[in-house]
Structure formats: C-alpha cells, structure tokens
C-alpha cells in the first residue's frame, strides 16, 4: 500500500538517508551486543541500491546538462557558477525541506511526550 507519490518527493531522499545510517547502526549494534551478527547482506544490498540510485540521478543530471545546459529550464543565460547553483537547487531545497519536516516531527513528539508526562503527574 503506497500513498500519493512513491518515488518522487522527499520520501526517496529520506530512505536514502536511512540507508546511509545502516552500516554505522549495524557496527554499533555489533560492538554493543556481542550476540548481534552484522547483517552484511542486507546492508550491502540496500547500500548497493542507494548507490545505484544516486549514480542514476547523477547520470540523468549529466545527460540533461549535456543536452540542455544548466540554464535551459529557466531560460536564463547562466555562467558556470550560476548554472551549478540552478542544478543543485532541487537537491538543496529537497534536503532542507526534509530536515525541516523531520525537526518539526521531533519537536512535536517532545511536546506531546511532555504533555502526557505532566498529565500523568497531575493524575498521581
């Protein structure tokens, strides 16, 4: 069951980030819990997929750049630096959005927890 826009949007970026954390989390688990076995296959597969996605996106970027040039979308004649800014803009915007949303979620979670704790304290 997928809702809305699987693939596009910041969801994809979020999962790429989660994959990047996996090897470190796995390493930490292995160090902390001696009985834990490093899940090489799972981590390698997901990292491989993420690497493939990032490479693919980079190739798309190169293809578009070679076909259209950096300023093609905006219709503005751009210098190399300005063009680079335009080409990186979607990534910067998406990443910033993701960070804002995740921060908002964590702040909301903190306040809800606090509210519940206070309510429990009052009840006692």
């Amino acid at each position: 069951m997928n809702i809305g826009l699987p693939g596009a949007g910041i969801g994809g970026l979020y999962y790429l980030g989660c994959t990047a954390i996996m090897p470190f989390k796995e390493l930490l688990l292995t160090v902390r819990k001696p009985e834990h076995k490093f899940r090489y296959r799972l981590v390698a597969t997901q990292l491989g997929i993420s690497f493939g996605i990032i490479t693919g996106l980079f190739l798309v970027y190169l293809l578009l750049d070679s076909l259209l040039g950096f300023g093609a979308l905006t219709g503005v004649q751009t210098g190399e630096d300005e063009g680079m800014f335009y080409s990186l803009l979607p990534i910067i915007v998406s990443f910033s959005l993701l960070m804002i949303i995740l921060s908002l979620v964590e702040v909301s979670a903190f306040f809800i927890k606090r509210k519940i704790r206070l309510a429990e304290k009052d009840y006692k």
Binding site: G4, L5, G9, I10, Y14, L97, I101
Partner: peptide
C-alpha cells in the same frame, strides 16, 4: 510525516 508531505504538498 514524510509520506503525508509527499502525498499532499508534493
């Protein structure tokens, strides 16, 4: 939350 964003605003 990310899903909500992607499904609505995106």
């Amino acid at each position: 939350m990310v899903m909500c964003w992607d499904a609505s605003i995106a």
